[in-house]
Nucleic acid binder design. Sequence first.
DNA 1: GTCTATAGGTGGATAGAC
DNA 2: GTCTATCCACCTATAGAC
Lengths: 189, 189
Amino acid sequence: MSTTDTATQLLDTAQTLIQTRGYNAYSYNDLAEAVGIKTASVHYHFPSKADLGVAVMARYRAQLAASLERIDTATTGCEPKLRQFIDIYRTAESCGTMCLCGSLAHDLDTLPDEVRAEVNSYIEASTRWICRTIEAGIEQEGLTTSCSPSDMAATLVGSLQGSLLVSRAGGGGHLVDAVERVFLVTLTG
Amino acid sequence: MSTTDTATQLLDTAQTLIQTRGYNAYSYNDLAEAVGIKTASVHYHFPSKADLGVAVMARYRAQLAASLERIDTATTGCEPKLRQFIDIYRTAESCGTMCLCGSLAHDLDTLPDEVRAEVNSYIEASTRWICRTIEAGIEQEGLTTSCSPSDMAATLVGSLQGSLLVSRAGGGGHLVDAVERVFLVTLTG
DNA sequence: GTCTATAGGTGGATAGAC
DNA sequence: GTCTATCCACCTATAGAC
C-alpha cells in the first residue's frame, strides 16, 4: 500500500483540525473535503463524531506513552529527559498548533463523556511521568529542587500547554524556549 | 435602576459562556434564554456575533488595565505586585473557568479579525506589565533573577493561562498555587 | 467503501409589526 | 426594545443504491 488508508487519513485530518480550530469548529464536511470523499463515507469509518474524537485521542495518548518509554530507555538523567519532553511541545509550537489534549481540554464542557475521559488520562499520564522523573533525579543524582516534584510537574504541564495557547496569539515568540529556560533553572538552582 | 440593563446582562452572559464553553460553542439562543428575551432582541443590542465578541473583549481588556493600575498605585514591591496579578487567575480557577482571553486565543483561527486583534492586545498588555514590574524590582529592590525579565514574563503569562486550561481537566488541583510557588522561587532565588 | 438523497436540527441574521 | 415569522446555510446522521 503506497497510500495511507482512509481511516488513518481521517484520523490525521481530524487531529490537525482539532489542534488548529478546536473540536466545535470542525465538521464532517471539512474532513470529507480534505480526504476527497463524501460525509456519508466518513460516517462509515467513524459512525459519530464522538467515536472519531475517542479514536483520535486514544491514538494520541498511545503515542505519548511510546514517546515517554523511548525517552526512558534512550536517555539518562533528569534534565536531559525533561528537555526531550519539552521538545515534543516545541515541535507543536513551531507548527503553530495546540497540543491535541490541550485543545480538547478547552472544549471539555462540550465533549462527549468518553472523549473527556481520554483527555483526563492524558494529563494525568504526563504529570505523573514528570513527577517520577524529577523524583528519580533527586534520589539518584542528588538533585535539589526549591519546590515539590508534584508542584513542578503540575507547573510544567500547565506552562507548556499555556505556551502553545499563548504563542499563537502573542506575536509568535518562542514561548516554549522561555519556559524551558525558566523551568530548568528552577530545577537545578 | 435596581436591575442591570439588558446590554450588560448580555455581555456578562456571553463572557461566562465563552469562558466555559468557548466562542464556537455558544449561540445567540443561549444568550436569549439566559437573559429571558428572544434572539432577535439580542441582535438589536449586538447586530452580529463579531460585534458582541469585540465588545466583551474590549470590556475585559479595560478591566485588566484598571486592575493593573490599581495594583501599581496601591502596592509597592515586585513580589507583592505579582502576587496580586496571580490572584486574578486564582479567582478564575476557583470558578473553574478559563481566562476570557485564553479561551479566545484557543479559537483564534476561527475568530473575526477585530476580535483577534483584541486578544493580541490583551496578551501584550499583560506581558509588558509583568516585564516592567520585574525590571523595576531589579532596579529599585536589587532583585536578582536567573532569567531575563522578558523570559519570565512570557513564561508567567503562559503558565497561568495553561493552569486554567489544565486544572479543569486534571482532577481539580490548585495549579495556580503551584505556578505561584515555583515562579516566585525563581524570581527571588 | 463510496455514493446520492434526505431527514431533522440548529446556527446567525433580517423584516416588519407592536 | 421586544416580538413573530422567516430565510438560508450548515450541522450530524441515516437509508438504500451501486
